[in-house]
Design a binder for these strands. Sequence first.
DNA 1: CTCATTTTAATACCTAGTCCTAAGTGCTAG
DNA 2: CTAGCACTTAGGACTAGGTATTAAAATGAG
Lengths: 188, 188
Amino acid sequence: MRLTKKERQSYLSQALEQNPFLTDEEVAKKFHVSIQTIRLDRLELGIPELRERIKHMAEKKFDHVQSLSPSEVIGEVIDLQLHKNGISLLEIGLEHVFERNQIARGHILFAQANSLAIALADWKVALTGNASIRFIRPVQLGEKCIAFATVAEAHDSRLHVGVQTKVQEEIVFQGDFEVYRVSDDRGN
Amino acid sequence: MRLTKKERQSYLSQALEQNPFLTDEEVAKKFHVSIQTIRLDRLELGIPELRERIKHMAEKKFDHVQSLSPSEVIGEVIDLQLHKNGISLLEIGLEHVFERNQIARGHILFAQANSLAIALADWKVALTGNASIRFIRPVQLGEKCIAFATVAEAHDSRLHVGVQTKVQEEIVFQGDFEVYRVSDDRGN
DNA sequence: CTCATTTTAATACCTAGTCCTAAGTGCTAG
DNA sequence: CTAGCACTTAGGACTAGGTATTAAAATGAG
């Protein structure tokens, strides 16, 4: 016997995570055991069969594509009063962090704040002009960031928005954004 | 007979595009024809079976996730002298722009500059502290952004980096980043 | 040696198909 | 009216990649 049951099962879940397209037969050969053993393993580990795995992936992708294109909205706007204030929520996931240390990349927090600031402007086309920002403490994987934006100054075609992002009452990010309006067909 | 063959086939491809998870049986009921008819239709239209459709979707998603996690590297670093200067290239694609007007979202340019600034620091863990930035002109879909970063000040654990992003000699973005070092196990 | 765990085997069944042959339906042109 | 054609439906055989169940081996530990 090569591996113990536990070892095999741990390798199995790894392998399927890395390549979900493997059939039971293929992994069975890899581990030099019978198909049935692999199936028992999957059963115990609660890993669904190939087709279900694939289906779930496809469903996720489908949801994703339907709901938000990757860069379109970072964070979920949960409250918004145009030209006044807004709140956006973002849970830091694996796709947001440095692999090495599980700390959220700066531009993710920036993107959340920036998106919110732009959403505050009730203009067809709004862009960011200047911004000055401060990353106060690193944000870890899994933390929920709540960005609070308030309009400090409002002009015809310019908005000054202050954004504070907190994790559990603790400020982690602060930024001032100057958002300006574009006259539709390109402008500025 | 409800629909002609052509009509049915056109609705069929539409329906499957909109919801690729439909089985032949389900659409057969929808169109009040037999399963065989639907299968003939798919054959003629070159539409693969449910499982293949789903698999292809999953594969696409998989490729995506494998190649670049959306936030990991924004822009391609083409030149880098640690603690001195660096250059990064980014071609604005569909995934970077507002749908409405094909202008690159601010945080994309920020992300490119931020990634480059952090790459300049030869530290295991480097994070952005403060930054002040200026979006000088909107960047359109398809434009190639070249970010030039130079270190203005270098201390033990802090780096001041200036970044200028240009599209064909024209400055579109400017930022000053303060990058700081973290003593490995979390720190700061 | 014996007992429990682990592994393998064998069988029936499932879904969502493919591929193939055959037969039925509806309409049109001679 | 009927032969011919396009279209539709039906049926059977086979497929992959399983589930679920039962049963028999193999193996290791006490």
